[in-house]
Amino acid sequence: MATFSQDMMNELERIQDFNKPRMIAVNNNKTYAYSNQVMGQIEQKNRADYSRTAVGLNQSNIELLTIQHEFGIYGGESGEYILDLAEKLTIPFIVIFHTVLVEPSMKQLAIMKRLAELSIKVVTMAQTKIIDLQEVYGIAMNKIEMFHHGVPVVATATRLELKATFGYENRQILSTFGFLSPGKGIEYAIKAMKGVVAKHPNALYMIWGKTHPVVKQESGEVYRQQLIDLVASLGLDKHVAFVDKHLTQEEVVQSLVLSDIYMTPYLGKDQAVSGTLAFGIGYGRVIISTPYRYAVEMLADGRGLLAEFRDADSLETHIVNVLDDPGLKAEMENKTLALGSTMMWDEVAKSYAVLFRKIIAQSYALKGSAV
């Protein structure tokens, strides 16, 4: 979400009729050195901070607020403290729902319904979630907007050039990037590599990223070590590589462009949005995924392949089929890139800008009529 927010701000800053956007950061009991883009801070578990922030916003020259919503970001049960802010706002706001659960708890349902009720618009990043917002959360269709998860525009070398630069000229590269956590299902992709390597001995699966900070705080590097041990037990040391670091935006894009196949073998079927999958589509990679809801929607019409959940054999079959058939690979890349070109942040930001202008204009019209 932090990456999403930063990318959105960077693009909106380029739009001439907007003032420089600013951000309010939510901290987790730590002190951070922020840039001047951050105008305020909320201590996650300090309930008073949410009301105080709302009062400050109301007294500022801010004309519109965007609330990025994800369970676990804000304090209180299911992040209920965010309502203290929303209920005290007198300026208009929209809410972007990064997660839309099909079976929310009563508390989760109440929070999202209340945020939607108070907001001017709600935004989802998946077409299928529009129905859930209507049927599960009771949100009117005319209040819902759907914008793709933005993908940053980063200039980079070609796949062949990057392979030459990093010494992978003769390798078929598969990759996954993002924070490591047990829900990513990477162990199944590693198991699939055993059969893949038997048919394509030049295949290399690269796992980019550090352990998720919450997972590391709770259980250390247990999951990563389990994956490393699995690689060793399968004799795949030369065919699976871990890049244990926080990636810069340029490195994320390079990891994708370098890849012949990008994989998201996630375990949760109801995942509404995946930023990493969006990045893979944006840069036109062949994608093999498990059929969580966002993947089913985004990989339709031949833009990717869907393996069964928790099924290494199914992943292996799809990987081998792509590596066996360069024509199929090229066809899928072209189809994926056709959608991906509409998902780049320079395009998505234009859609947000249209919405923001409309809301701000309506707000001024209402103020004028009240005078």
Rank of each mutant, 00 (worst) to 15 (best):
D49S: 08
E250F: 12
M125I: 02
Q16V: 13
A140D: 12
D7Y: 06
S78L: 05
Y168W: 09
S259W: 05
Q37A: 09
Y74I: 10
F356T: 00
H246P: 02
L89K: 15
L174E: 08
F93E: 04
D244K: 11
S369D: 14
M343F: 12
P201F: 08
L234T: 03
G167R: 13
L57M: 12
R357T: 00
V38H: 10
G235T: 04
G220R: 02
R159T: 08
K199Q: 06
I207D: 01
L299H: 05
N46Q: 13
G72Q: 12
V296S: 12
I120Q: 14
I15L: 15
L305R: 07
I281S: 06
L133G: 03
M125N: 11
L355K: 10
A54R: 04
T264M: 06
G76S: 03
S351C: 07
V38S: 07
K335H: 07
L83V: 01
F147M: 07
S105W: 10
K216F: 07
A192L: 02
A86T: 13
Y262E: 06
P201V: 04
K358W: 05
N36L: 09
S369I: 12
R303I: 05
F71W: 14
S233A: 11
S255H: 07
Y205D: 00
K367D: 14
R171F: 06
S314R: 05
A241P: 01
I281V: 14
K199D: 00
K358A: 00
T317W: 06
P21K: 09
T248L: 11
A370S: 12
V322D: 03
L12Q: 12
V102T: 08
K194D: 10
G40L: 11
K30V: 10
D17N: 12
E218F: 06
L315V: 05
L115D: 00
S255K: 03
A198N: 13
K367M: 05
L133T: 09
Y168H: 14
E117H: 08
Y32W: 10
Q362C: 02
Y32Q: 11
E316C: 14
V122C: 14
T176A: 12
M8D: 01
A272F: 05
K191C: 03
T90S: 14
V222E: 15
F71H: 10
V252I: 14
H98E: 13
D132T: 13
E347M: 13
F4C: 01
I287T: 10
